[in-house]
């Protein structure tokens, strides 16, 4: 069927081409942005700054996991630090006790966290909204105590924790170890964010959001709420666990007290500040969680927490969509002004 014979196709064709150009443009922007984000710090940043950026990337991944279950699916979790801890400890135990190479521990950590998340997802089905928040909060409070438990001390290293060895950069890259690790974490983060974006824009992503916004209508439309909720929880746990595994490699150390309730709260704050229910939001969240305490620490030792709390509350009042909602908010204000 040629275009000249079909007027409808003729009118459609010119519209379709710019749309495809738009997709190409977007891919180019994403690729260019990634290269810039990867290359600039590797070229200019000190090894400590690279370490901080690496941590920010792992936090961004963890917050992405939290945002999938809380932001997109509406299941409030205050205990995602627990999955982060399980991921980190899985990698630590596999690397120190079984000599598994660092990259091979990642899928194992993600799989273990996914299975645990799936297991937690079932009781979570019965715990609507607030009760799930309460239960996961209790999990977050209890995590350090469980990790310190004497019965598992041989594996976890008990109160003292366990040291890891930072992976060496492969020869051909010509990078030093910090630069290589940064690039490694960044590539994984980029892949996970692309994957999440694809998933959330798909049929399943729409199902997740409709269950968040109106579970009764979603069920009436024939969605299997239990299945989607438990699988979302599993996926979220796997992503956050993977982030924990990466953090263990980056920090070269795991100990119970680095997985206190504050970690879970940090992830929650990062999610709200970055943007609840936004895909790019967790990137801002990760940067916020790593760099804002450093800035605030110069004021006083306890100040980061106070400033954190104040910023969290201010965001909830003034900018509930977080950093990710900032451009849209400004656009709306400008439009309002031009109309009025």
């Amino acid at each position: 069927m040629s275009t000249s014979q079909n007027p409808l196709a003729a009118t459609l064709a010119p519209v379709a081409t710019p749309a495809r150009d738009g997709v190409m443009l977007r891919i180019l922007i994403v690729l260019g942005g990634f290269v810039a984000i990867a290359a600039v710090p590797i070229a200019f940043a000190s090894s400590y700054q690279l370490f901080q950026l690496t941590l920010a990337a792992t936090y961004a991944i963890a917050i992405l996991g939290l945002n999938i279950v809380t932001g997109f699916n509406g299941q409030i979790s205050l205990g995602h630090g627990a999955f982060y801890a399980v991921g980190a400890y899985t990698t630590a135990i596999l690397m120190t006790h079984f000599d598994v190479p660092y990259w091979a521990t990642l899928p194992i950590a993600a799989a273990i966290c996914g299975v645990i998340g799936f297991g937690i997802g079932f009781p979570a089905l019965r715990l609507g909204g607030l009760y799930l928040a309460l239960t996961t909060f209790a999990v977050a409070v209890a995590v350090p105590q469980i990790l310190k438990y004497k019965g598992v001390e041989d594996w976890t290293g008990g109160v003292q924790g366990t040291f890891l060895v930072k992976p060496d950069a492969p020869e051909f890259t010509g990078l030093d170890n910090d630069q290589y690790l940064y690039l490694f974490v960044l590539v994984i983060a980029a892949l996970l964010f692309l994957m999440a974006a694809n998933l959330l824009h798909s049929r399943i992503g729409r199902a997740m959001r409709s269950i968040r916004d109106n579970p009764i209508a979603a069920e009436a439309m024939g969605m299997d709420i239990a299945r989607i909720k438990t699988r979302t929880f599993a996926l979220s746990a796997a992503i956050t666990g993977l982030a924990g595994a990466l953090s263990a490699i980056a920090v070269e150390f795991v100990a119970p007290d680095s997985f206190s309730v504050e970690l879970s709260i940090n992830l929650f704050v990062g999610m709200v500040v970055g943007g609840v229910g936004s895909i790019v939001g967790p990137i801002f969240g990760g940067l916020f969680v790593v760099f804002v305490p450093n800035l605030a620490e110069s004021i006083a030792r306890a100040a980061p927490g106070v400033i954190y709390g104040v910023i969290l509350i201010l965001f909830l009042y003034l900018l509930p969509q977080g950093f990710a909602g900032f451009p849209r908010r400004i656009g709306a204000l400008l439009r309002q002004r031009s109309q009025g």
Partner: peptide, 20 residues
Amino acid sequence: LANVGVFIGLLLVFRNAMGW
């Protein structure tokens, strides 16, 4: 979620203000 967020914010402010 917003209410839980405010409570968590309060928790952070109180806890760290005490330490401070």
